[in-house]
Nucleic acid binder design. Sequence first.
DNA 1: AGAGATTCATAACGCAGGTTATAGACGAGA
DNA 2: TCTCGTCTATAACCTGCGTTATGAATCTCT
Lengths: 247, 247
Amino acid sequence: MTLLDSIVMQGLGRHGALTAEDKTLLLDLELNPRRAAAGEVLWQESADVDLFCVVKEGWAYSYRNLGNGSMQILKVYLPGDIIGMRDFGFARRLAGVAMINDGVISPFTHQQLFELIGRSPALAAGIIATVVRQQAMLTERLVYLGRYAAHERLAHFLYELYLRLKRIGAVAENGFLMPLSQEQIGDALGLSAVHVSRTFSMLRDEGLVVRDRQHVVLPDPQALARLVEFNDTYIDETLSSAFHGFH
Amino acid sequence: MTLLDSIVMQGLGRHGALTAEDKTLLLDLELNPRRAAAGEVLWQESADVDLFCVVKEGWAYSYRNLGNGSMQILKVYLPGDIIGMRDFGFARRLAGVAMINDGVISPFTHQQLFELIGRSPALAAGIIATVVRQQAMLTERLVYLGRYAAHERLAHFLYELYLRLKRIGAVAENGFLMPLSQEQIGDALGLSAVHVSRTFSMLRDEGLVVRDRQHVVLPDPQALARLVEFNDTYIDETLSSAFHGFH
DNA sequence: AGAGATTCATAACGCAGGTTATAGACGAGA
DNA sequence: TCTCGTCTATAACCTGCGTTATGAATCTCT
């Protein structure tokens, strides 16, 4: 799991050839890795925007604390993801970010990001693509919050994680580790922790999800995908050819 | 309402001086205006991505049609907004777009957008800012879908429209025209049309919203804002200084 | 190894909001 | 002016999910 540095390159660079300089620029982003403990808050809402991070190990999530005492988790970050792009261009953080479990992150500065954009059109395009893809994932979540029932939300959530983890080689025999508590899952899906538990039981009874603490197995991923009519365009879609021309 | 062409410039250019050439580039985007009738579908989900549009008159919305027969409205577009940025970088539309009422739109091509980005770093930065701001509005909606009750969702929705319309001078004496049906509002807020009606009645009884068909008045906008703890950072926040340095 | 804190499963109960139904108000077109 | 279709208001009824509670299992710290 330590060679995930390259995942960023895969994610950003798949659609166009990266030059050796591009690769150097990318690797430079990861020169300052540090450990981050479970629960550590990387930054709070409204903090100044100074850093972005590459997640190298562990999971993180971005969230909003609400006036009514509840929390909404906006996105779960996996190894290889870039944290903080949400705030790109803003002076203040729109959401807080915290680690879910112990991990390693590589912070880099606003400054570094601007330089990278200035030096490599290919990477600039890739970064825009990253932002747009994140927006697409957010949209997908929004649709599920607005119009689907609890079991569909949970199934969709698990299947999305499954696909994303598979991309980075963190799935074995349809199983993966999921360090999120049911409370946190509820905060992501707009459900109470109790109902998340109920819903897990339901999916278990239907043979769709087997779970033992943090270990999750999807015995039949296709069945899950059918249940949620999973639209994976937003995860795997290739960029348009017009976009390539931009490089 | 016909001079709204300039709104795009206001929205993108407020944070940095635009050169005369920048302005020309922007005006070039609006050379081909055409009428669009209420209900007209500008494009469907999964269609090829070819065009973007500036809305010059009228309202539009982007939406997803779901397998369970319902619809989720993702965003309402007002005069001066750019439609289609959601799909920037994708080969296929992630969402359909339709007109709410009669209006005028100015389509421009992928090609034009790329040229504009290539020629003017200031405009490129502005466009990224537009995308990020849209993402922020989407996030705000997501939070409300996940963690707030019907009356809070509706109040927030109305107040956001109020602010956006005020920016473009479409509010008079705290009142504005809202061409959305209650069914459409429900599709945006993840509620049934019946419950939207109930909730309007509730807000009316509390003196927060007066409504007669399409005419809406917010007698005390501040009271509404308090109800929803409105966070207008994402609408008005100035860009970070680092971002300015990028121009 | 023991104590306290977290997490999870399941049950009981209540309510916000979905669904269906009905009737009035309004708008477009003949 | 009449008709038909769309939109809205309100009522009656039902259910999915929130809330609260309890006990068991697991983790953490010493």
